[in-house]
Design a protein around this nucleic acid. Structure first.
Lengths: 179, 179
DNA sequence: TTAGGTGTGTAGCACTTGCTACAGGGGGTG
DNA sequence: CACCCCCTGTAGCAAGTGCTACACACCTAA
């Protein structure tokens, strides 16, 4: 790997942490550069522009989460919808996942207003969620497993959204009613 | 009403339309002023600062949507969860509601990073949703109707979130599997 | 008539934003 | 040695940000 790419990799790990902690909107190029331990001038040497920085960092965050999801649920086993919902809800309402869910909502919000490159990023992250659910969901004869998976993902994301607005235990009680 | 408050009212209606069309992040004070047909100097005469402008405009948007929800479902009738989910999903995936759902996600994203005054706004809008669902939901003996309502709201919001990321009919197919 | 409060336009300040021009260090190759 | 290209720091630009100082017209009350 070229040294430039090595530095990109090193920087990306730090950027991912920073995005999870701070979020998209509060991250200027100078902030990102400071978090990555380089100058803003250098960030724009490793990446073409700010959009590419954010895209790469978001991708990095998403692949980290995908990896954690993969570990949490053993491959090959399939659950019916109710069970998968409960399991996934337990994962995503875990405090450790909260920074990611916040970032995820922010990505979707940016995608909603068409701000490049977020529509593509949001689509990609969502599809990776859908694929994960699809691989662990026993559709039990449903003729449209993809739609069923979408419903699971929507429910999980919706719980995360409500969780952002309320700091009491309402979401936990709602999750207990799944299935 | 003082003339200053009259002007505030006139301006708010235009600001609400602008927010629905453009969104929060792309709205600078000068943009908002232009949309309202006044100077930025005057906006800060009617309102204390930008946060108050946005708070008032968001509140206006939300009360408009609350009104539409109230019209769509007759007061006094209660549906079991499955039926209410289907009805609410039909409402919120309606193209006419899409601008609001996008703005809603943006509000939650701002709330997620703690940016005043959005945590309070998000909480307030969510609670009005919860109250609406609570008033139309037949809990059928569930010991925690509020949690059930939260699950309904979460599912609806989650579908809207997925809808932002995909432009195909996946969400419609998922909504068809509700209940 | 004068004093004072109300409403409004002009101009601009201090700051942040993404991005770039320029110069120079440092190491490999002829 | 000389050359050149990869890397990196300094400085700064043009645009946009929220917000404010100031002046001025207008109306009302003493």
């Amino acid at each position: 790997m070229a040294p430039r790419d090595e530095q990109r990799e090193r920087v990306l790990a730090r950027l991912a942490d920073h995005l999870l902690a701070i979020g998209l909107a509060r991250s200027s190029l100078r902030d990102l550069a400071r978090a990555a331990g380089v100058s803003d001038r250098m960030l724009l040497y490793y990446f073409a522009d700010k959009a590419e920085v954010l895209a790469a960092a978001c991708e990095r965050v998403a692949s980290g989460v995908a990896g954690r999801l993969g570990e949490a649920f053993p491959a090959g086993t399939r659950l019916p919808m109710a069970g998968l919902l409960r399991g996934a809800a337990a994962l995503t309402t875990d405090p450790a996942m909260r920074p990611f869910m916040r970032l995820w909502v922010e990505i979707v919000a940016a995608a909603a207003r068409g701000e490049a490159p977020f529509p593509a990023i949001a689509r990609q992250v969502l599809d990776s969620f859908l694929a994960w659910v699809d691989a662990h969901l026993d559709p039990q004869g449903d003729p449209d497993p993809a739609a069923l998976a979408a419903l699971v993902v929507a429910t999980i994301d919706g719980l995360a959204l409500v969780d952002i607005c309320r700091d009491d235990d309402l979401v936990d009680r709602a999750a207990a009613r799944l299935g």
